[in-house]
Design a protein around this nucleic acid. Structure first.
Length: 595
RNA sequence: GCGCCCGUAGCUCAAUUGGAUAGAGCGUCGGUCUACGGAACCGAAGGUUACAGGUUCGAAUCCUGUCGGGCGCACCA
């Protein structure tokens, strides 16, 4: 189904052209108030200004030329020149059947499929995943789901922090522990040794400061890693692979579509870094100067328009005075790989807003170097912080970052307590499953439903509430629809047959029509969410859908033996399918049949 | 100091990117129900969109300034 806004826009644009000879935007949006209809066109205002006409008179001309009676009731002109449109029930009914007949809910694929690289999550190997990784991980995942669903070729990239100075000391400590175990005639149990990777990190750091011998070993380790020593690389690989297990468990818990297939960490680019620097040294700007120059001992690129706090040109440092490379260098190498090897048309970076300057400079340097042309779109998708109830960044009482695992476990635990209370007769297995879906879903949904650019206050009580725009409310709405189906089967109604028997949905009740109108807007909501990569548009849509369903549910008994029943069963079925698709396929939140 | 983001109901947040009378949820107050899950639904009250100017048919949204908050600004990521 072509989305309704586009369909109406085409007609109005054509009418404008016919009435005035001008090509102008129809500016169709959903009506600001349902009393005005379903959609409105504000195109007459802009054009009237341009032509120095009266907008109301212009709107009248446009409406006179408008051919839209297959979609809408007769258009109305209101106020200073709004064109108000109300969908014909027949049009709504027809589209309802198309959604029912199409496994993808009749959502149109993009006419311009692209290869889109999405860089998200990117945990640091030497740390457990904490609350700071939550937003990037799930926002990125949702963006991938939405892009993939409308037909783009999505390449997920997990740019993990698996290379750098800290691995010298980690490998050295790991090596010591292996040797120690060997002396005792035992084998080191890697998963146990590294279970608390941060404690391991702290221990190594401590030793560096207090134990000169260890510090020396750490230097040897880092030198060994850089020169490709098999022994040290083996140690490094063990550490990396065991930490990966940790966050793969988290991804599984979160139902995020990341696996080892998507990992392409900093270490993958280590052989390309010198080349990046050399290339930038050789490239010349328009004045014939090399792009990369030495400044205070470091190799830097100075993209235009960036200043330090002293007011000097701001460097993008790609090689430190001591010869080491930085994350800027790695990001440049990764960007080149994504363009040249992955053939990206677009690259989306999902990291917090604090890295804005870094990405602005990265993009500027890449363009200056000619690595990307104007057809390639680079996006830095920023987001705000997760705050505690006190309005400050969420920390534990002792001031540490909250571990993602602890946070999710707590959410599931609280959800379980609610299930125990509300539905004690369910089996232990079912309770477990529901608690998991509700707890994890609540955390994710709360994040998605906030505007990603602002900070938000993390509150278990709010996100687990049954009221309002929350995961449990949505999951409950789904469970309630599904229970109608169960009830119907108990009464001996063959639901599938009855739904298939609907040749023309009969949308006579206002609540039926309102629900149906909302159902056919699903594709539009995905487009809107994608245009700015903001999942909260999608959660808004789903919440409104659940509310429309509630209205319908109260007003229209479904299971009574009346001619209205087949259409009502169809509406229930499509509501369930839409909620499930939105929650599971796009947001990655599990639905349950009962809760 | 410079740059970026932000300031919307008592609280937590929206507002489809410049559209009509700024919307939800929580909390408060009042109501509904012998139907399919009351874990529901309906209604009321609550606003000078931080403040002051400006742009235009029209501003929470764009511009300027002020105040308040967050973040960032040369070798960490």
């Amino acid at each position: 189904m072509k989305n309704v806004i586009e369909l109406i826009s085409e007609r109005i644009t054509a009418a404008i052209e016919q009435a005035t000879g001008q090509k102008a935007a129809a500016m169709v949006t959903p009506a600001t108030d349902s009393k005005f209809g379903d959609y409105q066109s504000n195109g007459a205002f802009a054009l009237a200004k341009q032509l120095k006409n009266n907008p109301r008179q212009l709107a009248e001309k446009v409406v006179a030329a408008l051919q839209i009676d297959d979609i809408c009731l007769p258009p109305e002109i209101a106020g200073a020149g709004f064109i108000n449109l109300r969908l014909k029930p027949e049009f709504v009914a027809e589209n309802l059947l198309r959604i029912a007949a199409n496994p993808n809910l009749d959502i149109e694929k993009t006419s311009n499929p692209q290869t889109v690289v999405v860089d998200f999550s990117g945990p640091n190997i030497a740390k457990q995943m904490h609350v700071g990784h939550l937003r990037s991980t799930i926002l990125g995942d949702c963006i991938c789901n939405m892009l993939g669903f409308i037909g783009h070729d999505v390449k997920r990239q997990n740019h993990i922090g698996d290379w750098g100075k800290q691995f010298g000391m980690l490998c050295a400590l790991y090596d010591r522990k292996c040797i120690e175990m060997g002396r005792q005639g035992k084998t080191l149990n890697a998963s146990e040794t590294l279970s608390d990777i941060e404690a391991f990190y702290r221990e190594a750091q401590q030793l560096c400061n207090t134990d000169k011998e260890f510090d020396q070993e750490a230097r040897e380790a880092i030198a060994g890693l850089h020169s490709g020593s098999q022994v040290w690389l083996a140690r490094w690989e063990e550490i990396v692979s065991y930490s990966r297990e940790h966050y793969e468990k988290i991804y599984e818990k979160l139902r995020v579509g990341l696996s080892d297939l998507h990992v392409r960490g900093e270490s993958e680019y280590r052989d390309k870094l010198a080349d990046v620097v050399n290339d930038l040294k050789q490239k010349k700007d328009s004045q014939g100067n090399p792009l990369a120059v030495e400044s205070d001992g470091a190799i830097c690129v100075f993209p235009d328009g960036f200043k330090t706090k002293e007011g000097n040109p701001m460097p993008f440092i790609i090689q430190k005075t001591d010869g080491a490379f930085l994350y800027a260098t790695t990001d440049l190498a990764a960007l080149r790989y994504r363009i040249n090897e992955l053939k990206a048309d677009r690259i989306i970076y999902v990291t917090d807003a604090r890295q804005k300057l870094h990405f602005e400079m990265l993009f500027a340097v890449a363009r200056k170097a000619g690595w990307i042309n104007d057809n390639i779109k680079l996006d830095h998708i920023t987001f705000g912080s997760v705050l505690g109830e006190d309005g400050k960044p969420l920390k534990t009482r002792s001031g540490e970052n909250v571990k993602l695992k602890d946070l999710l476990d707590e959410a599931v635990k609280r959800a379980k307590a609610v299930v125990e209370e509300k539905n004690p007769e369910l089996s232990a297995d079912e309770k477990e499953k529901i608690a998991n879906a509700v707890g994890i879903g609540a955390v994710k949904y709360a994040d998605y439903s906030n505007n990603r650019t602002s900070d938000y206050i993390f509150s278990f009580d709010k996100m687990l509430a049954m009221e309002g725009n929350t995961a449990p409310y949505m999951q409950y709405a789904y469970a309630r629809v599904k229970s109608i189906g169960r009830k119907a089967e108990q009464k001996g109604i063959n639901v599938e047959n009855e739904i298939n028997s609907v040749k023309t949905p009969n949308l006579t009740e206002p609540a039926e029509l309102a629900l149906a109108k909302h159902l056919i807007k699903y594709g539009q909501s995905i487009n809107t969410a994608l245009s700015d990569l903001r999942p909260n548009f999608l959660t808004n849509y789903l919440y409104e859908l659940a509310q429309e369903f509630s209205g319908f549910y109260n007003a229209c008994p479904v299971l009574e033996d009346t001619p209205a029943r087949p259409t009502r069963l169809l509406l229930c079925d499509l509501t369930a399918k839409t909620i499930r698709h939105g929650l599971e396929n796009l947001l990655g939140i599990e639905v349950v049949k009962q809760m």
